[in-house]
Computed example of a mutant assay.
Amino acid sequence: MNAHAMTRRWPTCLAVAIWAAQAAAGASDTLDESVTGFGEVLPLLPLLYVVINQLGAPRSTWPVLGGGLVLVFGLQALDLVSPPGAMVGIALGVLLWGAVRGAPRPPAVQAVGVAVFGTLAVTGLLVDPEVGRWLVAAGWFFHGLWDLAHLTMERLKGIVAPTFAEWCAVVDVLVGVELLLLR
């Protein structure tokens, strides 16, 4: 890949680099630890889309991601509430706020995302890790397709920053594959 192509595809390059660093750091994790870690982060993905849709400002995507990561890791560190439960609850609250207040774009598509990805994450965390791996991996993989849809489909373009949709699609698919290949 030449320098010009890498500059244009910086979200993909960044996604691969972050995923590789994460995979190296988690190489010694057990299956249970990996399923738990990825399962607890999965609900953040639809939450970001719901919040950004409600804000109506795709330019806020990257800062919202930063805030979301602080939320996830803060919830994990505090260990007071279930991170997935809290994120699904926050997403439902934002969806309700959007329904009452009005949203820049109808929130129905994003509500489907919260339901599907939240269900896969929570169920994946509740079952045996061997089964949970498949559910959580499916959530990550299908969220990668969700990102691609937001990147390419006219009616979904503009909800999040295109650079984020590209980055997230790559990360999500790589995480899904990683979960499936764990021993």
Rank of each mutant, 00 (worst) to 15 (best):
A149Y: 10
A3L: 10
L71N: 10
I52C: 01
L174Y: 08
T30L: 03
N53H: 01
A169C: 03
W146S: 04
R9H: 14
Q22A: 14
V122P: 00
V100E: 01
L31W: 09
R101D: 08
A25K: 11
V175D: 01
P162S: 08
V64A: 11
G113F: 12
G139D: 05
V35G: 01
L71P: 12
C13W: 14
S34P: 00
T152R: 15
L78K: 06
V109C: 01
G176V: 05
V16K: 09
E166G: 06
V16D: 06
V72F: 15
F141G: 01
L120G: 02
G56W: 14
E154G: 02
L135F: 08
P162Y: 07
G93P: 02
A20N: 01
L44F: 15
P106G: 14
L47C: 08
V131E: 09
V175S: 01
G176C: 06
C168H: 11
E33T: 10
V177D: 01
A111C: 11
S82H: 13
R59D: 13
V175Q: 10
L96V: 15
L71T: 12
R133E: 00
R155C: 03
W167F: 15
D128C: 00
A3G: 03
I52Y: 04
A21R: 04
A77M: 11
A137R: 08
P129F: 09
T123Q: 05
